[in-house]
Amino acid sequence: MLVVSLFVCIQKGVERFQTRKKLASITIQQMSDIGMTKELKDAELAQATLIGFIRDVLFFIKNKGRME
């Protein structure tokens, strides 16, 4: 059970990492549509690194998979 939980946390971290990478290619109009500012976009892109990925996985493990 522990291994499955760890795998789920890693999978969520990978999803979040991929989403942040895709964020780099959205247009200004799309950013406006979702209510995102350039500063927020830059902050999210700064977390699209290996360290950000590990931080997300540890966050999910600590919070048992909840995104609170």
Rank of each mutant, 00 (worst) to 15 (best):
residue 2 L to Q: 15
residue 2 L to F: 04
residue 2 L to E: 09
residue 2 L to A: 11
residue 3 V to N: 11
residue 4 V to N: 03
residue 4 V to P: 09
residue 5 S to K: 13
residue 5 S to Q: 15
residue 5 S to Y: 14
residue 5 S to C: 03
residue 6 L to R: 06
residue 6 L to E: 15
residue 7 F to Y: 10
residue 7 F to S: 14
residue 8 V to Y: 14
residue 10 I to Y: 08
residue 10 I to H: 06
residue 11 Q to W: 13
residue 11 Q to F: 15
residue 11 Q to E: 07
residue 11 Q to C: 11
residue 12 K to W: 10
residue 12 K to N: 13
residue 13 G to R: 00
residue 13 G to V: 03
residue 13 G to Y: 01
residue 14 V to L: 13
residue 15 E to I: 02
residue 16 R to F: 05
residue 18 Q to T: 03
residue 20 R to E: 00
residue 21 K to L: 12
residue 21 K to F: 04
residue 22 K to I: 00
residue 22 K to V: 01
residue 23 L to A: 06
residue 23 L to G: 02
residue 24 A to W: 04
residue 26 I to L: 13
residue 26 I to T: 08
residue 27 T to S: 14
residue 27 T to E: 03
residue 27 T to R: 05
residue 28 I to Y: 12
residue 29 Q to H: 09
residue 30 Q to M: 10
residue 31 M to K: 03
residue 32 S to E: 15
residue 32 S to W: 10
residue 32 S to I: 02
residue 33 D to Y: 14
residue 34 I to L: 05
residue 34 I to R: 02
residue 34 I to D: 06
residue 34 I to F: 06
residue 34 I to T: 08
residue 34 I to G: 03
residue 35 G to Q: 08
residue 35 G to E: 04
residue 36 M to Q: 13
residue 36 M to L: 13
residue 37 T to S: 13
residue 37 T to F: 06
residue 38 K to I: 10
residue 39 E to V: 05
residue 39 E to D: 03
residue 39 E to N: 05
residue 40 L to M: 05
residue 40 L to I: 10
residue 41 K to P: 01
residue 41 K to R: 14
residue 42 D to G: 06
residue 42 D to L: 12
residue 42 D to F: 04
residue 42 D to R: 14
residue 43 A to Y: 07
residue 43 A to R: 14
residue 44 E to Q: 02
residue 44 E to C: 01
residue 45 L to H: 07
residue 45 L to D: 03
